[in-house]
Each structure stands twice: as structure tokens, then as C-alpha cells.
Write a protein that binds this DNA or RNA. Structure first.
Lengths: 119, 119
DNA sequence: CTTGACCCTAACATTAATGTCATCGTTTAT
DNA sequence: ATAAACGATGACATTAATGTTAGGGTCAAG
């Protein structure tokens, strides 16, 4: 299947599929005219890539374990656990940071509203 | 006071102070030789800018109410409440998004650990 | 007058996935 | 053979505050 069809089937843009190729996530065969030729498995592979991207992992991280998880269950791929744990720790940090800001904002909003009530 | 001293006093980098100038947040006088000359008030102004930046507001947003809050209490500056509320809503959205990812990560980590326990 | 410590502007880099555009070759149907 | 649809590559843009560097002025102390 060519790139347009794969894009239609997965919802990924043609641009993104070319980028995944460039980053080594999916290397399709090349026809004699230079066109990318994707196997039937590519659809699953792209969905897998999309899923890990939605977890906030980078293409570089994904590339480090993608081949393994396409064949095995995640538990079999020892590279993936430390990546998950690192990402989780980043996310926790970000949530904490945002929660701090949120508290500050709420306090200031409350204080403005209070002053407008009793001027 | 010149830019280096203001930088030392506030912890902002010289580069940042020049950027605030460029963005219209603080327009110091210019000496005949072109040097920026900051008044004694500038120190407070920079700290105020730093505070609003730490709330995640953009220089453009800050510039829309900075002059007012430097003179009055926040409650007097009608521009600021909608900006706070919009920012709060963005933060809530981001926290929700991150929490979703966090749950997914925790689930997958737990499932990997479970499989390694009972293979 | 020279050195060192300041100051200035302008420009590019940073991050990472994706969008967009220009330019070109290929294939297919009429 | 020509037009439409598709594919390829390459380059630039996106966001926003800050870092960095290059190339030059200014000033004060020795």
C-alpha cells in the first residue's frame, strides 16, 4: 500500500508518515519509482506509534523499543519500563508546577472578587 | 541605574531586560551614549514582571495591564480578571490532559510489573 | 594610551512534531 | 497526449522567552 492509503487508514498525515520514516520508526520498501510501499503490518505499526506519541514519548524514545513491542508484549521489552518511569516523573513534576500556578491564580481571582464586593 | 546593576539586583538576565524593553514592558530612559538608564522604580517593576511570567502569562498579556497594576491594586484593573480566568481554564485543561497520561502510564507500569512477577 | 569592564545592536539557536509550499516525476484514465 | 491524482524531496514556518556570539562603542583607572 502506498503512503496516501496508509494515511487515510490511520489518520496520520502523509507528512507525519514521511517523518516517521525519516526518524527510523517505519522504513517502508521503495518501489522502483521511489514510491514508499507499506506492508499490511504498517497500519498496526502506525497506530502503535500514535499511541506512544499520545503518551508524550518522543520519536527517539519510541524508536528505542518499537521493534520489540511490535513482536512481544511490553513486559518483555526491558527498555520500556525506565522510559515509562522517567516520563511519569516528568508528568508528576509538570502537574505539581501547574497546580502551584493554579492555586496562585485562584487566590488572586478570589481576592479581586472580594475587593469588588466590599470596596 | 544601568542594565547590569538592575540585572544583578533582580536576577533577570541582561538579555531578558532588553527583551522586556523591546516588548514595551519597561522602557528605560536612554543616556546620550545610548545606554539604558533605569529609575529606582525599575527594580519593583521587574519583580512584578517576573511574578506574572511565573504565572505563565505572556509578555503581551502582561503589557496589557502592567501599567495599571504598578499604580493600583489588581482589583482596580479590569483587564486582569478575564486574563486570570482564561489562564486558569488553560491550566485546568493541561492538568486534565496530564492526569490522563499519568493514569495510562501508571496502568502500563503496573501491568508490566505484574507480568514480571508471574511469568 | 591602553586595558578591563560595561554597554549597544543584530542575528541565530533552542525543541519537536507537524503544516505548508514549491518544484518535480509518475501513473492512470480519457 | 493530456489532465488529474498521486508520490517524492527540500525548505521554511510554527511558539516565546532566553542563551549565545559577533562586532563595535564607551568609560574609568592605571
Amino acid at each position: 500500500m502506498k503512503i496516501g492509503e496508509l494515511a487515510r487508514r490511520t489518520g496520520a498525515s502523509i507528512r507525519s508518515l514521511r517523518y516517521y520514516d525519516e526518524q527510523g520508526l517505519i522504513k517502508p520498501l521503495r518501489l522502483e519509482n521511489g514510491y514508499r510501499e507499506y506492508s499490511k503490518l504498517a497500519e498496526d505499526q502506525v497506530r502503535t506509534i500514535q499511541f506512544y506519541l499520545s503518551l508524550g514519548l518522543s520519536t527517539e524514545q519510541i524508536s528505542s523499543f518499537l521493534q520489540c513491542v511490535l513482536i512481544n508484549k511490553e513486559a518483555f521489552c526491558s527498555e520500556i519500563l525506565p522510559i515509562y518511569e522517567q516520563k511519569l516523573s516528568e508528568i508528576d513534576q509538570q502537574i505539581n508546577q501547574l497546580s502551584l500556578i493554579k492555586s496562585n491564580l485562584e487566590d488572586r481571582i478570589a481576592s479581586i472578587l472580594a475587593e469588588q464586593q466590599q470596596p
